[in-house]
Structure formats: C-alpha cells, structure tokens
Write a protein that binds this DNA or RNA. Structure first.
Lengths: 232, 232
DNA sequence: GTCTATATAGGGATAGAC
DNA sequence: GTCTATCCCTATATAGAC
C-alpha cells in the first residue's frame, strides 16, 4: 500500500501560516525592539511593513529600496516606521531570523516521524518545496539578501543553509545503511538536491509561465534524485 | 575507445580569456561610448574598472557599491571614471552584455562539432562549468544583478537564460530520438540541469571549503543527469 | 502612537583647471 | 586624459508637535 503523496493544499491547511501570524510571532520574539505597546496595533502594522518590504525588496533589491518607498507602500509615515524598526538593517535581520527559525522548525517537525529513509527523503523534498511555495517571498528575500548582511548575520545564514543540507545528507546516509541507496557521496548528493530545491523559488516565474506547479516539480526532483541514489 | 574528458586547464589554455582581453573587446564593441581615444590607455583603465566593479559589487551588491568605493579601489578619481562610463547603470549593461555574448559564443563553438548527443551533453556540461569557473565573477554578477536592470536589459538576461536552457533541451531531445535517452520531459530535465550548473558559481565558496573542484563537480552532475535520462 | 519637519550625511554627476 | 572642487538630490534617522 503506497501512501498518497502530500499535497500542497493539505500541507498549507495543516501549517496555517499567515503574514499576520508571522508578524505576531515576530512581535513576541522581539518585544523589546518595538516602541509600540498594544499588540493588536503593532501586529497589524508590522504585518503591513513585512509585506511591503518583501514586495519592494524582491522587486529591486533591499539596498535599492528606500524607506520613502516603504513609507509610500505601507501608507505609514517615515517617522511612523521607526516605531517598528531601529534602523533599515534591522528589517533584514528580523525577516531573515524568523524565516530561518520557521523553516528549521517545520522541517524538523515534518521529517521526524518517518522511519523509512526513502519515504523520509520524499517527504522532506515535498515539505521543503511546499514551504518555499507558501513563504516564497521570505525564501527569495533570504537567498538574495544574505550577502548584504553583517558578519554575524551572514554566519547565521550560512549555518542555516548547512543545517538543511545536513538533514538531507543524513537521510541519504540512512538509506545507504539500510541498503536502499547505493554507495555514492552523500554530501554531494545533498548539495545537488539543495540546488534543485532553491531553483524552485528563485525561478518561480519561469515555472509559472510553463504551467509547472510545485507538485509536479516535486515529483520531478524526487524522480531525478532516486534514479541517482538507487541501485541500477 | 573513450575520449579523455576535457580538463579545466586544457580548456583554459585553449580559450585564452583574460580581463585585459575582455576589456579590449568591450572597448572595441562600444567605441562610441568612451571618451578616451588611445586604446592602450583605455583598455588598461577599463580592465581595472571592470575588475574592481566585479569585486565590490559581488561583495556587497551593485546598488550598495558607490562610485566613491570604486574610485578608491581603482585608484582613479571620480571624474576620471566618467571618461569610461556615462552613468553607474552603464556599468551593469556593459558587464552583462559582454558576459552574455561571450557565454553564448563559447557554448556555440564548443558544442557544434560533436555528433553523438550523449557526448555532446557531457561536453556541454563541462564547458559551461569550466567557463563559469574561469569567469566566475562575471557569472555571479549577472546572476545576482539581473533583477536590478532596466526592462530592456532584463529581457535580454531572461532571453540568455532561455537560450542556454534551449541548448540543453535540444541535445536531450536528440538523444531521445537516437534512442539513447528514455522519454522524459526534456524541458524539465534541461531546467534541472541548469539549476545544477548555476549552483556551482553561486555556491563557489562552499565547494572550495569542501575541496570539491570543478572537474569533480562536473562528473557528479553528469552522473546524476545520465542516471535520470538513460533507460533503466 | 503617529505625524510633519528637519538635521546630517552620502549619493551620482558635472565643470573647469591642469 | 585625469584631476579637484562642487552642485544638487535623495538617503537614513531624529525631534518634537499632536
């Protein structure tokens, strides 16, 4: 009996992520940072700011996006924005930090319960792609702006990248120990897999133009990786 | 009798690309743009400007790089720079334009002479990776700065991306017609291959830290793609 | 809690001396 | 052909009114 593969909609419903929810978590995680006390007001504005920042920065780059752009897009004044951010660079940190935490948490939760390595790898691929589809703007932002971060934050981004890759490497190694995969360099396999996962959100528009949805893409990546990993 | 696979050093020697050579071609292609008449002087300075721009822009992003940064790095004055560029944005166009042309020309030259699709695909993968290794700074720059371009230039970048992908797709289709590859979606296969090729220059430092060189990477990508494309 | 008005610095670009 | 000096604008950030 083969399990029905995870679908995007099921995953989305289960996960229940929203910009409002992310803004709320961001507010609570960094309460000391914000001048605004009332959570309701703060979350609403923060959500607006996040949304606008991701849109503008993903269009023309974070450093090319001015706070005047952001002020116009959010409908808030320049002064008003500074009740939520200490500086422009704060914004990058906030967005990146929450994105990394959310990704690691979701990937951990989702892959922990599956014993069979082959099934676990399939599931991990689908979950990662679906999550990047739902949080497309966050993933794209983190990918593109990582190199503009300060040394400390950059280190964090590199660590997060490695963390994800390690997750895949360990699943592949488990599959090899179980005799389900042949003996090939698991780190290289994980690196190539990661490249394929990233391409989904980096080239999102290309795939849209071709009517390739994320579920089809997931199956293609799984097929490619399995033909490589399995014995001939 | 199997042919010895192309090595990076052989390719590099054959190709003979240098920053000076690229600067010279850029000068001749855009003679009207430059105020400086003496080719020797112009090429030397242009080469310096290109080198510095790629270094600075790849470190912190083109839009975050100021012309004052560039002036300091090149040792030229602000006014002096303007003998070579009409505006800061000119620089992006120049670099991108020559990069695209060089890539398309080299790929065309190198893949035209090989009749067997399987061998042609292998060769195309190696050539693309080796070229991106040699022109790493150009490839990285084009990849990262493409979205900051004006509409016209952006279109050009997208067209170039498509052009490369089409090259791979056509080789795969030829292999399918010859019965060497199984029937799988050739466009999707080409897209995934392209993602793997791009990852080499985007994550160059990661691979260096792992002592993975471009020749090893090429063989891994070839092995992965062939296990997917060939009959079981 | 949010606004307007403004301080201060740094950006791209140019004029004109040499 | 290259430099110095400077123009003018836009950037981030803050002060203080409401």
């Amino acid at each position: 009996m083969t399990q029905e593969p995870l679908s995007l909609n099921v995953f989305r419903r289960e996960l229940g992520l929203s910009m409002q929810g992310l803004a709320r978590q961001m507010y609570r995680d960094n309460a000391a940072r914000f001048k605004v006390q009332k959570e309701g007001v703060a979350v609403r504005n923060l959500s607006n700011i996040l949304d606008a920042t991701l849109t503008l920065a993903n269009r023309k780059g974070f450093s090319a996006m001015s706070l005047r752009d952001l002020s116009e897009k959010t409908g808030m004044s320049l002064g008003g924005l500074y009740a939520y951010i200490g500086s422009k660079d704060d914004l990058v940190e906030l967005i990146q930090g929450l994105g990394i935490e959310t990704t690691e948490r979701v990937m951990q939760e989702q892959t922990a319960g599956i014993a069979d390595p082959v099934e676990r790898l399939r599931h991990a691929i689908r979950v990662h792609l679906f999550l990047s589809e739902i949080l497309r703007a966050w993933f794209y932002f983190s990918y593109m702006e990582a190199r503009h971060l300060g040394a400390q934050q950059k280190q964090r981004a590199v660590a997060a990248e490695l963390h994800t890759e390690t997750l895949y490497r360990e699943i592949i190694e488990a599959g090899q120990r179980a005799g389900q995969y042949r003996e090939t360099d698991p780190l290289m396999a994980a690196a190539m897999l990661k490249a394929l996962l990233q391409d989904w959100y980096v080239k999102r528009n290309k795939f849209r133009d071709r009517n390739v949805d994320v579920e089809q893409y997931a199956e293609s990546v799984i097929e490619l990786m399995e033909s490589y990993l399995k014995d001939e």
